[in-house]
Simulated assay, not measured.
Amino acid sequence: MSEPLPTTRALKGRGAASNPEGRFERTRHQAEDDGWLQEVEEPVRVETSVREERARSVITRNDSPDIYFDQALNPYRGCEHGCIYCFARPSHAYLNLSPGLDFETKIYAKTNLAEVLRGELTKPSYTCKPINIGSNTDPYQPVEKHWRLTRAALQLLHDCKHPCTIVTKNAMVERDLDLLVPMAEQNLVQVFVSINSLDNKLAARLEPRASAPHRRMKAVATLAEAGVPVGVLVAPIIPALNERDMEAILEQAAAAGARSAGYTVLRLPHELKGLFREWLDVHVPDRAAHVMSLVQQMNGGRDYDSNFATRMRGQGIFADLLKKRFEIASRRFGLTRARELVLDTSRFVAPRVTSPQGELF
Rank of each mutant, 00 (worst) to 15 (best):
T310S: 14
V230N: 12
L335N: 07
N96W: 08
E327F: 07
E144R: 09
E243V: 01
A31W: 10
S57R: 12
P6T: 03
D245R: 05
A261E: 03
I195D: 10
G35V: 14
E225S: 14
R56L: 05
M298H: 07
S18Q: 05
S57M: 04
L117T: 08
Y108H: 12
D70S: 09
A235F: 01
E271N: 07
Q297V: 05
G78Q: 04
K201S: 11
C86W: 14
D344W: 08
E115I: 02
F308C: 15
N187D: 08
D303K: 01
R23D: 01
N19Y: 01
P65L: 06
G82I: 09
T137A: 06
L335C: 02
V44K: 11
L272M: 14
R9S: 09
Y263M: 01
Y68E: 09
L37E: 15
E39I: 14
R23Q: 01
R61L: 14
I249D: 04
M217C: 05
Y263S: 00
A55L: 05
G358R: 09
D344M: 08
G15N: 13
A93V: 01
L275C: 05
P130H: 15
V143Y: 05
H290T: 07
T48R: 12
C86E: 14
Q186V: 01
H290A: 08
L95D: 11
A93G: 12
K145F: 06
Q252G: 03
V193Q: 04
T137S: 07
G35R: 15
L241G: 02
A256C: 15
R339L: 06
V173K: 11
T345A: 08
M1K: 15
T345N: 11
E52A: 12
L294Q: 15
S306E: 13
I195N: 13
E25K: 00
I317N: 15
N242S: 07
L73V: 11
D178S: 06
G134C: 09
A288F: 11
D66K: 12
W279E: 03
Y304L: 11
E47K: 12
Q155S: 11
L275Q: 07
R54V: 06
R151S: 08
L272F: 10
V265H: 00
V291T: 06
H146Q: 13
A350H: 15
Q297R: 14
Y304C: 03
E271Q: 12
R26K: 14
L95P: 00
G358D: 10
C128L: 08
A17L: 02
E32N: 10
R56Y: 06
A184R: 06
S194L: 07
G119L: 09
